[in-house]
């Protein structure tokens, strides 16, 4: 009897590395228990996630979570789930996930191989690339014109890294958030601000005189946005992906896209056929 118990314990010990494979998802358990999904998202990145004029925290990424991911999680855990939002920024988002402060990052996070070593990513929900925002008439038309120029970037973003590698003599000024970087561009501290094209369009639309600014240059990087979650929770990732997949298949995703980026949306940005093909390819279409 006693020996049998020891054998069982040893077996359990040997099998414990396999534990997570069989076990229920810790994240889903946590959500089931609390009835709440906590996401980390942005406050100043229109139209993905921002505080609007009516002081509401809204955006495309938040809608995707609310209308596609939450229903999928509710179905999985068998009860209605509420959404809680917390602010996350590029330097804080991975630590927020790893400390269990949030369960999902849904903002403007680019899926990169380095980040995949620390977190898991959902299906790509948006595809953009880095460009430059400059004053109209600026001599900067793309990445080939920035040698020696003062270029603002957002700290912790992939764009700064690419510029450092491709144009090492550009003078980089890295700001922790978008408003400070944009202010520096407005005042002439920098000659251009680089970020993902879509975010630059968003900033331009919000600027005091949108026509004074233009977004220039070909994409000098490819930035697929994904939702990030703690590494190794396959069940939770499946559930999140199922929600997005359902959205792509039913067309609900494209309705939400239209709400924010359509002709009457917050920021008109028609989806190119290439981008659409890229998104649908993920679900085998």
């Amino acid at each position: 009897m006693k020996r049998g118990f020891v054998v069982l314990q040893v077996l359990a010990l040997l099998l414990s590395p396999l534990g997570p494979v069989f076990a229920q998802s810790q994240t889903l358990d946590k959500i089931k228990e609390s009835g709440v999904l906590t996401i980390g998202t942005r406050t100043g990145s229109p139209p993905f996630a921002y505080i609007n004029k009516n002081n509401e925290w809204v955006g495309f990424s938040i809608d995707l979570v609310e209308l596609l991911v939450i229903p999928s999680i509710s179905k999985e855990v068998g009860k209605p789930i509420k959404l809680t939002k917390k602010e996350s920024t590029p330097p804080t988002r991975i630590p927020l996930l790893n400390s269990n402060s949030v369960d999902l990052i849904a903002g403007t996070m680019t899926d990169t191989p380095e980040r995949r070593q620390s977190v898991d990513f959902s299906l790509t929900f948006f595809l953009t690339g880095a460009q430059f925002l400059v004053k109209k008439g600026s001599p900067i038309h793309g990445i080939n014109d920035i040698a020696g120029k003062r270029i603002a970037t957002q700290q912790g973003s992939t764009n700064a890294k690419i510029i450092r590698e491709k144009v090492p003599n550009a003078q980089l000024r890295e700001f922790p958030d978008q408003p400070a970087a944009f202010q520096a561009l407005l005042q002439g501290q920098v000659d251009a601000y680089t970020n993902d094209g879509i975010q630059l369009y968003g900033l331009k639309a919000k600027a005091p005189n949108p026509t004074d600014w233009e977004v220039v240059g070909d994409f000098f990087s490819e930035e697929p946005y994904g939702m990030a979650m703690r590494k190794g929770d396959a069940k939770f990732k499946q559930t999140v992906d199922a929600g997005l997949k359902q959205g792509f298949e039913s067309g609900k995703y494209f309705e939400i896209y239209d709400k924010w980026f359509g002709p009457k949306g917050e920021l008109p940005y028609p989806m190119s056929p290439q981008v659409k093909a890229y998104l649908l390819k993920q679900i085998g279409k």
Binding site: P91, I94, N98, G156, T158, A160, R173, P176
Partner: peptide, 24 residues
């Protein structure tokens, strides 16, 4: 001072985080 893009020590630790995704 990192808020106004001075590349001091804390800034650089964040830089390492950007490149390696190893914040801690």
């Amino acid at each position: 001072a990192l808020t106004i893009s001075v590349a001091e020590l804390t800034f650089q630790t964040r830089q390492i985080e950007t490149y390696t995704a190893r914040a801690i």
